[in-house]
Simulated assay, not measured.
Amino acid sequence: MNSVDRPAVAALAEPCANCPFRPAGSAIPLADGRLRAIAQQLIADDTRPFLCHKAAYHPKAVPGRIAECRGAQIWLRKMGFPNVPMRLAFSLGLLNPVELDGQADQVIGVEILDEGLPKE
């Protein structure tokens, strides 16, 4: 199987410019607490991918050719919680964990899980 024949595991090779998993200031604006809820859901249910908003809503999107958000993949790997689709892709050689590790500085960190919580 060559790279042309491979199914898309991530929609993009790196997080898009306004990926919700990018640090504040460059991420798409979301309602207060929304990104925290998404992050918690990703950790709580490792069977569901977080789909790329660019691939899903892009005018040139091909129906049925949506893929997981690269920012979410990098964040999940950074947090130590790769989901089932990612682990399957790792084992099939469709996704490179070392490549994700090399992009860890492009996404937020664990602080998102504490966002909005009362300080002790």
Score class of each variant (00 low, 15 high):
3 S>M: 10
4 V>H: 08
4 V>R: 14
5 D>G: 10
6 R>D: 04
7 P>R: 15
8 A>L: 15
9 V>M: 11
9 V>W: 01
11 A>S: 11
11 A>F: 12
12 L>K: 08
15 P>M: 09
15 P>E: 08
17 A>N: 09
17 A>L: 12
18 N>E: 13
18 N>K: 11
20 P>D: 02
20 P>H: 02
24 A>P: 13
25 G>Q: 04
25 G>E: 02
25 G>R: 02
26 S>K: 12
26 S>I: 05
27 A>K: 06
27 A>R: 15
27 A>C: 13
29 P>D: 13
29 P>R: 14
30 L>I: 02
31 A>R: 15
33 G>K: 08
33 G>N: 10
34 R>S: 13
34 R>Y: 10
36 R>P: 03
37 A>G: 11
37 A>V: 07
38 I>L: 12
38 I>E: 03
40 Q>Y: 02
41 Q>K: 13
42 L>A: 14
44 A>G: 08
45 D>V: 07
45 D>E: 10
45 D>C: 05
46 D>R: 15
47 T>H: 14
48 R>L: 14
49 P>R: 07
50 F>T: 00
50 F>A: 13
50 F>D: 08
51 L>T: 13
52 C>P: 06
53 H>A: 12
53 H>Q: 12
53 H>N: 09
54 K>A: 09
54 K>Q: 11
54 K>W: 11
55 A>E: 07
56 A>N: 09
57 Y>H: 14
58 H>I: 00
59 P>D: 03
59 P>A: 05
60 K>Y: 01
62 V>S: 05
63 P>N: 07
64 G>K: 04
65 R>T: 08
65 R>C: 10
65 R>V: 03
66 I>V: 14
66 I>P: 00
66 I>C: 10
66 I>W: 14
67 A>D: 01
68 E>P: 01
71 G>K: 06
71 G>M: 04
72 A>W: 05
72 A>R: 04
72 A>L: 05
73 Q>M: 15
74 I>D: 06
74 I>E: 03
74 I>W: 03
74 I>T: 13
76 L>R: 15
79 M>Y: 06
80 G>D: 07
80 G>Y: 08
80 G>T: 03
81 F>M: 06
81 F>Y: 15
81 F>H: 15
82 P>Q: 05
83 N>S: 12
83 N>I: 08
85 P>Y: 03
85 P>E: 01
87 R>C: 11
87 R>Q: 15
88 L>A: 11
90 F>Y: 15
90 F>V: 02
91 S>E: 14
92 L>M: 12
92 L>F: 09
93 G>E: 00
93 G>S: 00
95 L>F: 01
96 N>S: 08
97 P>R: 04
97 P>Q: 01
97 P>I: 02
99 E>T: 11
99 E>S: 10
99 E>Q: 11
100 L>Y: 01
100 L>M: 01
100 L>I: 01
103 Q>N: 04
104 A>C: 12
104 A>I: 00
105 D>A: 15
105 D>C: 09
106 Q>I: 08
107 V>P: 06
107 V>K: 06
108 I>G: 05
108 I>D: 05
108 I>Q: 10
108 I>N: 07
109 G>W: 06
111 E>P: 03
113 L>S: 06
113 L>A: 07
114 D>N: 14
114 D>S: 14
116 G>P: 10
116 G>L: 09
118 P>Q: 03
119 K>Q: 14
120 E>M: 05
